[in-house]
């Protein structure tokens, strides 16, 4: 019955190596296919014999990929900024005061993640059309300008903030907004960074709402660009993989640099 610690450690390594391979191999396969010349795309060799940038040249030719990437950066940055600001303000209201209706507001915010987007998509679409938001970047940002998880994570972070410091600021005559900006926010850099990372990645990967809203490829964001591309160039695998690699590059770079923070922010705020 007793297995030696060494055997068990070995087994653990094996399991983890298997899982790591499973996780990373598809991404690797995407990247390596993108460097293959057309003649080599169907080869099962693990890397290209004669790597080339040809596929990337063609992507740039057939699709306004840089414009699309720029749209996506704008959209994700604006969404992140909006979600962090609205999140900070709302969290501050819930932490700083106890007031009638406060609990109701808190649950309205917390329960909003229970409403599936598909249930409200038609009224949202009608409203966006009426407001002239169709086919615009603003239309992608505005409905996502507040996120329940941003409010809740920042709320939890602020609750841990020492009361005495806030009180001292009030004694010094600082208003609630000044206290928030000058005392609370500078001390919450880590949770704010963590929420921002999460907001940015989920905005970057957002699929459904842009799918409804965007009509023209030059107005699109990268996820929808890829979708268009897939239906047009369906089986041009080298081309598709090059486009997919370009679309993933910013996120993978962020991950490479901020790996620990990224993992931690995901683990703190759950799956969505």
């Amino acid at each position: 019955m007793t297995t030696s610690p060494n055997t068990r450690r070995f087994a653990a390594h094996l399991v983890m190596i298997g899982l790591s391979a499973l996780a990373i191999f598809p991404v690797y396969w995407m990247v390596q296919t993108s460097f293959r010349p057309e003649s080599e795309v169907f080869s099962t060799a693990l890397w290209p014999a004669t790597p080339t940038l040809e596929n990337y040249r063609r992507v740039i030719e057939v699709m306004p990929i840089f414009g699309i990437l720029w749209n996506t950066v704008l959209m994700a940055a604006a969404t992140t900024a909006a979600q962090v600001v609205t999140g900070l303000l709302a969290a501050w209201a819930l932490v700083r005061w106890r007031f009638p209706g406060g609990r109701l507001a808190h649950s309205l915010i917390a329960l909003s993640w229970l409403v599936p987007f598909q249930v409200v998509m038609i009224p949202n679409y009608v409203l966006a059309t009426r407001l002239g938001l169709l086919d615009t970047i603003a239309g992608l940002v505005v409905p996502n300008a507040a996120a329940a998880f941003a409010v809740l994570v920042l709320y939890n972070a602020m609750r841990g903030f020492p009361r005495e410091v806030v009180e001292a600021a009030r004694m010094d005559g600082a208003g609630s907004l000044r206290t928030l900006i000058e005392v609370v926010i500078p001390n919450l850099r880590a949770p704010i960074a963590s929420v921002s990372i999460l907001c940015f990645i989920s905005a970057w990967n957002e699929y459904f709402w842009p799918l409804l809203l965007i009509r023209k490829i030059e107005n699109s964001v990268v996820q929808i660009g890829l979708q268009f591309f897939m239906s047009q160039e369906g089986n041009d695998w080298g081309l598709l993989m090059a486009a997919a690699t370009l679309a993933s590059l910013p996120i993978l770079l962020i991950y490479l640099v901020l790996q620990r923070q990224v993992v931690e922010s995901f683990m703190k705020s759950g799956i969505r």
């Binding site: 699929y207 897939m230 679309a247 993978l252």
Partner: peptide
């Protein structure tokens, strides 16, 4: 290991779709 097994979580769903469509063609 932790760094590697987390990667699929941040890959965009549509990218995952395209990559698996290719692997499973």
């Amino acid at each position: 290991y932790r760094g590697l097994i987390f990667v699929p979580m941040i890959v965009a769903p549509i990218v995952a779709a395209i990559v698996w469509r290719w692997l499973l063609n």
